[in-house]
Computed example of a mutant assay.
Amino acid sequence: MKVVVIGGTGLIGSKVVARLGEHGHEAVAAAPNTGVNTLTGEGLAEVLKDASVVVDVSNSPSFEDQAVMEFFSTSTTNLLKAETEAGVTHHVALSVVGTDRLQESGYFRAKQTQEELIKASGIPCSIVHATQFFEFIKGIADLSTDGDTVRLAPVKIQPIYSGDVAAAVGRTAVGAPLNGLVEVAGPEQFQLDELLRKALAAHNDPRTVVTDPHAPYSGAQVEETTLLPGPGAHIAETKLADWLAQQQ
């Protein structure tokens, strides 16, 4: 089976390509640095020739509202058109748990648009919703930093290791199209502000985490369970402490 992985040289994509290859599939990494650009359409027809499945784990280089909307709407439209012409029979996309509940955020509005385009395309599809990656915890802090202070709401979060996300995406890619969503999350729940205190301390980051019930998350107000998966989510195995130990 030929599987084309859009964003296949990035954090998740490179792991998906490796896992699919280990299981005997022809996994092709497609990204601007391999000559494939979904924003312009460059290289799409060539890379999709004889592909059965397309996995899209690409992300916008800019999180500014207009830029991120332009990225996901344009790249997804171009990709789906090329897939239709190539006869691709399964489109898999990686998105985020809680996307539909975070529509105050420009980033999550763009992700919602991506999902709606996929569902309307007529191509059999599967959308994998993952919770935030361990690797992005510092990024959450950066988005919430003012000076030396990180303001975070005391809401629950269930982060996941990127390797476990890649495994879930790979399993989904070689299975039958779901024509719906599957959720994947880490094995532990944390309170967001406490998680960031622990993670910053582990990296000797001097910033102070302040608990603020009104602090936004990526520009959106969040409630206690906004960032959590629902019942039936696939629960991965890697714990945060084990991942932190590996980093050190």
Rank of each mutant, 00 (worst) to 15 (best):
G10A: 09
G13D: 10
A18S: 13
R19W: 03
L20A: 02
E22N: 12
V28D: 09
A30K: 00
N33V: 02
G35P: 00
G35T: 00
G41C: 11
L48M: 02
K49R: 15
D56Q: 02
E64Q: 14
A67F: 03
M69A: 14
S75E: 01
T76W: 02
L80G: 02
K81D: 12
T89A: 14
H90K: 08
A93E: 05
L102I: 10
Q103L: 15
E104A: 14
F108E: 04
R109S: 10
A110S: 15
K111G: 06
Q114A: 12
E115H: 01
L117N: 05
I118G: 00
K119H: 01
S121E: 10
S121M: 10
C125M: 12
C125Y: 15
H129L: 15
Q132C: 09
F133R: 11
S144Q: 11
T145C: 00
T145D: 03
G147E: 00
R151G: 01
K156A: 13
S162C: 12
G163S: 04
D164Y: 06
V165S: 09
V169R: 07
V169M: 03
A173D: 06
V174K: 01
A176V: 00
G180I: 04
L181T: 14
L181N: 15
V182C: 13
A185I: 10
G186Q: 03
Q191L: 08
L192T: 10
A201T: 06
H203C: 01
D205V: 03
P206V: 12
P206R: 05
R207G: 10
P216Q: 01
A220C: 04
A233W: 01
A233F: 00
I235N: 04
L240I: 07
A241D: 15
